[in-house]
Design a protein around this nucleic acid. Structure first.
Lengths: 145, 145
DNA sequence: TAATATAGTTGACGTCGTCAACTGATTCTA
DNA sequence: TAGAATCAGTTGACGACGTCAACTATATTA
């Protein structure tokens, strides 16, 4: 085993911790928790996802997924529609309010990441991206810990 | 703003999400949640931390920190000791059981990270580490989101 | 068409972290 | 040095959250 692996683990865990604060406080973020934002973002990225698809992506049980979608629907960020192809399936559609809110939250995160990296040259930033692609490829290959 | 920043945000969030699964299932992990493991690990890294120091590192309120330490103490991973210097302060000491458990969980994570990176050359892995150092330095500079 | 499988929902439940009020120890200050 | 202010930690009440098992309703299969 490469001797850097333990350090790399520590660094990933520290990074992880900072990006998983439980509330997204601030004027921009409506009343969304991180989990809700992740679900809303997923629904926004690929429209018409089913509830279970969102749940699987986020590693929740299907009842957990239902609950998250409940909250997002109550807050009017999404609407449930029944699939025309299969009446059991709910297609999740993001509302205008949902789209605006995702955009605002994303802006806030992007500003944060930009601040993190502003002092570095473009080549360094490209390198950051490639490394993250390696890591994300790695977690996709292995699934959740 | 560098045009890679939004992609970098997505990659960080995806990586983050995979490393923050809420339970550490498996024979190795005793009965610890991720939060509990993070607190135990922190206590293990720098012995004799106060409750608030651990809470601040993990971004919890002081009552939240008390609760986490309660759980760890009930499960016998740590012991509270009163500071001899300042009678208000609790020094957190990790028990043998705590040390063993941190080691086991760390091993599991290290195996996961090793699997993620096993196909890459040492120079690539060094590069992964430098990039993560850049990112962690960035989050330290800015604090929690 | 009856049996089975699948998507989603719901009630009960236990876990979790916060808030505000509290205790007790320490430090400051008049 | 006594009283006030400050600080570390604790506690009860609370609401938010995700899971489990049982359920409904739709779709598929034999």
């Amino acid at each position: 085993m490469n001797k850097q692996i333990p350090d790399i683990l520590n660094l990933i865990q520290e990074l992880t911790w900072h990006f998983s604060s439980r509330e997204l406080d601030g004027a921009c973020c409506g009343d969304l928790s991180l989990v809700e934002y992740m679900a809303l973002n997923k629904a926004w990225e690929s429209d018409e996802l089913s509830i279970q698809e969102i749940g699987n992506f986020l590693n929740f049980t299907k009842s957990g997924a239902t609950r998250i979608i409940d909250r997002l629907e109550n807050k009017e960020y999404i609407i449930r529609k029944r699939s025309l192809v299969d009446g059991r399936v709910c297609c999740i559609a993001v509302t205008d309010k949902g789209r605006e809110t995702v955009a605002k939250i994303k802006e806030k995160y992007i500003a944060y990441v930009n601040e993190m990296l502003k002092e570095y040259e473009p080549e360094v930033i490209d390198n950051v991206k490639s490394v993250l692609e390696i890591l994300v490829h790695g977690v996709h290959k292995q699934g959740f810990i």
